[in-house]
């Protein structure tokens, strides 16, 4: 079960790809450990780069072996997220591949 910072060969999204973060609040239904902040769910961003492959924290949190997943740096324009802020300012977030879809 290889994983690590350089293991990005299987990345589905290339730098520059437009992606949408999956929407929803599944943690309202059952206890979960999610590393995708609520404020970008359902929002569009741009892949900066793939950061590596890491065991899925959603499994690790419950003591289960985590299946390695590709982790990306994704950049979002700030003003649309909050309805305020300065044009050009952005937020850069680590997001796992299973939270992303093509936009």
């Amino acid at each position: 079960m290889s994983h690590g910072v350089h293991d990005t060969a299987q990345a589905r999204f290339a730098p520059g790809a437009r992606v949408r973060v999956k929407p929803g609040r599944p943690e309202r239904i059952a206890p979960m450990h999610l590393r995708t902040p609520h404020y970008v769910r359902g929002r569009e961003g741009v892949v900066a780069r793939a950061l590596g492959r890491f065991p899925n924290p959603e499994d690790l949190a419950f003591g289960r072996p985590g299946e390695p997943r590709i982790l990306y740096h994704v950049e979002f324009d700030q003003p649309p997220v909050w309805g305020e802020g300065e044009v050009g300012d952005t937020v850069l977030i680590e997001i796992f591949e299973h939270w992303l879809e093509e936009a």
């Binding site: 206890p31 924290p57 690790l60 949190a61 419950f62 003591g63």
Partner: peptide, 12 residues
């Protein structure tokens, strides 16, 4: 334990 078990039990 893993950091995510630690995080989850703080979130709880």
């Amino acid at each position: 334990f893993t950091v995510d078990e630690m995080r989850f039990n703080i979130e709880a």
